[in-house]
Design a protein around this nucleic acid. Structure first.
Length: 487
RNA sequence: CGGGGUGUGGCUCAGUCUGGUAGAGCGCCGCGUUCGGGACGCGGAGACCGAAGGUUCAAAUCCUUUCACCCCGACCA
């Protein structure tokens, strides 16, 4: 299925010409900055407020690096503005989630952030949810709430419009901002109060159908996380306030994780990889689920020492910490029954639908990815989510040969379908390298008069630090090859 | 919500104990010298010290109230 139903949120940067007028600057000495794909993304005209020192509020690596790399700015406790660089990554993650959901046959939509309290009174959760729920009142004294999740609302939509089993199975999802008034937000976007989440809801006629939806989600989540360069392990978990019987959480192993986890080390060998999957096939989805969930892997909520020892040989027992980046639930008729979401089956009976809900913490994924991908110098983006695919560093701004080579490289990279970031500032080499390392673009092309005399530029991997000298054409070709199949 | 802590230029902090009217480094602006891993020199701009009240001849500093943010715990995607 073509992932054609989502939109790109980012408009192209304002043309330099219009900025001239807006800024009242009559002249700019730069050469023309338009390419066939749009405006040059040059650092001297971008908004990338990097910090040399770490703001005192940040305790863990991802939070520290997101602040230093100019990705976010705290607006108040647990609430953040997404500055241009952070916004780019957020969008890429969002886009991967959209694509993988739609490949699995799930249908995108969008529900509001503010919900009516009446809907939540129907399910009984208005009173049950507690002070985590942000409650507001409008001018007519109506009770509203800033949604922490959307089971009630989606169930209401479903019951209003679907009445026949013939319309099932159906899975709807959206990616929307949520709010949970955590007592103690921390760790930047990993534990914010406002957060962006993909939440999806399946509607099925029978338990068996609903379990297929559950399995399908598990598969799609494995693929989603792998595309982001993450290993997220499905672990048996507690259902919490959503309720339900079957549930798995997806955890990324990291020392700064909020959950303690226990698992069989064999599980970290598993990858979904490039294999093909037919989402319609119950057998295939079921097989993947069994492959990935048969070994012991639990969060501390469901962990039992004796079972761990029985099922896992001592040398494979691992105890670690993990960041939760997603969760899938089957909860049957918990909402459909009280809220009257029924369909007519082939016998003419009105039966409540079987449901499940499935979430991916989109904004917190940035934190998780950085926790798993950084070093002392900064972030190291996996190719799948990097804000720019390659950084072009001009070591001698103003040198005619270097300037020209950089702009030609820029155009060639754009022609190859990739997005470069061109550091055209009049900084010293060290400052430019430090900035590139900090913001973590996985590939850097360094252009200087010294190399150009021999007709070469330098292509450097952020992850390994390895460099090689190539002609500009070769460098672009190589970068294009690296990204082929990863986007 | 319990316990602890911090609010001083954009950032990191000193100054508070022992009141006398605000400092440093980084960043920013200008000039010059530099220029392949966060350069150096000179000059400059920028803070009514979280807010409100009080004590005092005088408050960043002492007292009261209040707000915000951070950390530990409990809770949580």
């Amino acid at each position: 299925m073509a992932p054609d139903s989502y939109v790109s949120y980012e408009s192209p940067p304002p043309p330099i010409g219009s900025r001239r007028i807006a800024c009242g600057r009559a002249f700019r000495l730069h050469r023309p900055q338009h390419t066939s794909r749009g405006t040059f993304m040059r650092l001297s005209r971008y908004f990338l407020p990097v910090l040399k020192e770490t703001p005192s509020e940040a305790q863990i690596a991802s939070h520290r690096l997101m602040l230093r790399a100019g990705m976010i700015k705290q607006a108040s406790a647990g609430i953040y503005s997404w500055l241009p660089l952070g916004y780019r990554v957020l969008r890429r993650i969002e886009q991967i989630v959209h694509e993988e959901q739609q490949k699995a046959g799930h249908i995108p939509m969008l529900m509001p952030t503010l919900q009516s309290a009446d809907l939540w009174r129907e399910s009984g959760r208005y009173d049950a949810y507690g002070p985590e729920m942000l409650r507001v009142r409008d001018r007519q004294d109506r009770d509203l709430l800033y949604g922490p999740t959307n089971e009630e609302m989606i169930t209401d939509i479903f019951r209003s419009h679907v009445s026949s089993y013939r319309e099932l199975p159906m899975t709807l999802y959206h990616i929307q901002w949520k709010f949970r008034d955590e007592v103690r937000p921390r760790f930047g976007v990993m534990r914010g109060r406002e957060f962006l989440m993909k939440d999806g809801y399946n509607f099925d006629l029978t338990y068996e159908d609903a379990m297929h939806a559950y399995n399908r989600h598990l598969v799609s989540y494995l693929r989603t996380y792998e595309r982001m360069g993450l290993q997220a392990i499905p672990m048996r978990a507690e259902s919490g306030p959503i309720g339900g019987d079957d549930t798995h959480e997806f955890l990324v192993l990291a020392e700064t994780g909020e959950s303690e986890v226990f698992y069989d080390s064999e599980i970290t060998e598993l990858t979904f990889g490039e294999r093909k999957i037919d989402y319609e096939s119950r057998e295939e989805c079921q097989a993947v689920l069994e492959e990935f969930t048969s070994r012991y892997a639990r969060t501390d909520d469901t962990h039992v020492d004796t079972e761990f020892e029985e099922q896992v040989p001592e040398e494979r027992r691992r105890r670690a910490r993990g960041i939760e980046v997603g969760q899938i639930f089957y909860f049957g008729t918990k909402y459909s029954e009280p809220m009257g979401a029924t369909v007519v089956d082939d016998q003419g009976n009105h039966v409540p639908v079987h449901m499940g809900s499935h979430g991916i913490g989109v904004s917190r994924l940035l934190g998780a990815i950085i926790e798993a991908n950084h070093d002392d110098n900064g972030i190291i983006w996996p190719e799948g989510v990097t804000p720019f695919h390659v950084g072009i560093v001009n070591l001698k701004q103003g040198d005619e040969a270097a300037d020209l080579a950089c702009e030609q490289l820029y155009n060639a990279v754009v022609e190859a379908g990739l997005e470069p970031l061109y550091d055209d500032r009049s900084e010293r080499a060290g400052a430019k390298f430090a900035t590139m390392d900090l913001i973590g673009l996985p590939w850097r092309i360094t252009v200087g008069p010294r190399g150009l005399k021999n007709g070469v530029v330098e292509l450097t991997s952020r992850r390994t630090g390895e460099s090689e000298e190539l002609t500009p054409d070769q460098a672009v070709t190589k970068v294009a090859q690296i990204y082929a199949g990863k986007l």
